[in-house]
Design a protein around this nucleic acid. Structure first.
Lengths: 101, 101
DNA sequence: CATAAATTTGACAATAAATGACAAGTCAAT
DNA sequence: ATTGACTTGTCATTTATTGTCAAATTTATG
C-alpha cells in the first residue's frame, strides 16, 4: 500500500539524525505508534502534521499533500477505474475552486 | 458536499419512472436508506453498485467511477491543497499501473 | 382543500472500524 | 550476552458507520 507520508517523515527524521524516541516524545506518542506511522500501518492524525513539520523542519503543506495523497490512493487501491475516477474528481475540484465554493 | 453518484442514480431512476419503493425493494433496503443514498447522506456499499446498475439499466463502471470520485472528493473536502494532492495521487496511480503492481 | 402516496429527516441501537497503550518481539552494534 | 532502536501483535476503548423505525415534509390527485 501507498505510504508517501510515512516514507517522507522517516527520511526527514533520518536526515535530521533524530531517533524515533526523540520525535515521538515531542508529538506525545510512543515509539511504536511512530513506527507504525512511518511504516504506513497507522495514519497520523491531521493535527499532528503541523507538529511533524515543526520537528522535522519542513513545510507543513508538503507533508499535508502527501498525507492527503495517501488517503486518495487508499480509496483507489485495487480499482481498475482508479484513473478515471481521479480524473472525474479532479474536474470537480477544479470546478469547485472556480466557484470559490 | 459532492454527490455525483446519488445524483446520477436519482436521475436514472426518474427517467425509468421508478419509485424509490420499487428500486429499494430490489436492492433489499428501505426507502429511507435509498433516499439518503440519493441525497448523499449515506453511501451505497460497493456491492450494491452492480445491483443499481442492473435495476437502472446502466453500465456498472459508470456508477462505480462516480462512487469512487465521491469518496475522493470527500477526502479533499475543504482542503486548499486538494489539487496538488490529487496530482500526486494521479502520478502514483499511473506509476502503479505501469508496474502492473 | 383534503387526503393519500412518495420522499425526506431525525433519532437511536447495533455493528464495525480506528485508535492508543502496552508487552513482547526482532535486529544490529558492541 | 547486553543494550538500544525499532517493529509487531494484541486488546480494550473510543469513534464512526450502519440499518431501522417513526415522524415530518413534500408532492400528486381527487
Amino acid at each position: 500500500m501507498s505510504n508517501q507520508f510515512g516514507d517522507k517523515i522517516k527520511i526527514l527524521r533520518e536526515e535530521s539524525q533524530l531517533l524515533q524516541r526523540q520525535v515521538a516524545s515531542q508529538l506525545d506518542m510512543d515509539t511504536s505508534m511512530l513506527s507504525k506511522i512511518e511504516g504506513g500501518d497507522r495514519k497520523a492524525k491531521k493535527e499532528q502534521i503541523t507538529q511533524f513539520a515543526k520537528v522535522l523542519k519542513v513545510n507543513a503543506d508538503e507533508l499535508l499533500t502527501l498525507w492527503l495523497a495517501d488517503q486518495l490512493i487508499e480509496v483507489l487501491e485495487g480499482e481498475y477505474l482508479a484513473l478515471k475516477a481521479i480524473q472525474v474528481a479532479e474536474e470537480e475540484v477544479k470546478y469547485n475552486a472556480r466557484k470559490k465554493k
